[in-house]
């Protein structure tokens, strides 16, 4: 679940992002409260709040006064675009480096990608 590698609030924000991308949290639906996040992940409520606020700042969530946090309309597409932008650096470059290290040629690699794609 939560690991020690990065700030916890960043991980909370990512979990909410994933939920929105995967359709667990629909646009205009209510997000769990910071206290609910805190008790579920056994973390400090202020930390959970920081994660939620990160997404408010990015316009992914918005606050309804006295009610709670909600997912902004259009948030899903916005997040998908952000993840696509990160894809090259996060996955492709790492993969190519590893492939070079263990002697897989570019051709072999692209063949693997084609085959792997069919498994889906």
């Amino acid at each position: 679940m939560i690991d020690d590698s990065r700030p916890i609030y960043v991980q909370i924000a990512e979990r909410i992002e994933n939920d929105i991308i995967e359709g667990g949290l629909l646009e205009e639906s209510q997000v769990p409260s910071t206290n609910q996040f805190a008790s579920f992940y056994q973390i400090n409520p202020a930390t959970a709040g920081k994660g939620v606020n990160l997404l408010v700042d990015q316009g992914i969530l918005y606050k309804k006064r006295g009610v709670g946090m909600f997912v902004t309309a259009g948030a899903r597409e916005k997040l998908m675009q952000k993840r696509r932008d990160q894809f090259l650096e996060q996955y492709v470059i790492t993969m190519i480096q590893e492939a070079e290290k263990i002697g897989i040629t570019r051709d072999q690699l692209s063949e693997m990608i084609m085959k792997g794609g069919k498994l889906q």
Partner: peptide, 11 residues
């Protein structure tokens, strides 16, 4: 202890 502490601290 941890569960109750966080829960009661939130309330």
């Amino acid at each position: 202890f941890y569960d109750r502490l966080l829960e009661d601290y939130a309330k």
